[in-house]
Write a protein that binds this DNA or RNA. Sequence first.
DNA 1: ATGCTGACAGGAG
DNA 2: ACTCCTGCCAGCA
Length: 109
Amino acid sequence: MINKNKGFFDEVYRIVAMIPEGSVMTYGMIATILGNPRASRIVGYAMSCAPSVEHLPCHRVVNQKGQMAPGTIFGGEDHQRQLLMKEGVTFQSDGCIDMDKHLIKWGIQ
DNA sequence: ATGCTGACAGGAG
DNA sequence: ACTCCTGCCAGCA
């Protein structure tokens, strides 16, 4: 029990919390898994309410473009980028995450 | 109950 | 190809 029951939020936290190191997931993908592909905004909103990064690796959650949020969250997008790199995630010249290699693979759950 | 906000996604120009 | 606008859902005042 890492957080209170917030309905959709709780599900979002659960998905994000199960993301392994070296892998990333997109907001739309999480929303689709929850059953609401249109609720991609809610996923990001839930991230803004993230209690602790230790229980919620929101830095592993990126948008469909493979880019992270503006940076008002962790104290700098660059900081988040470094965290991902430290976990083994590679970035492109554009600064976007290499989705083709680090996008989480769902086959076992 | 209604309206506004929000770390997105997709379509159109 | 890139950028801008709209649409969607959940939470809070």
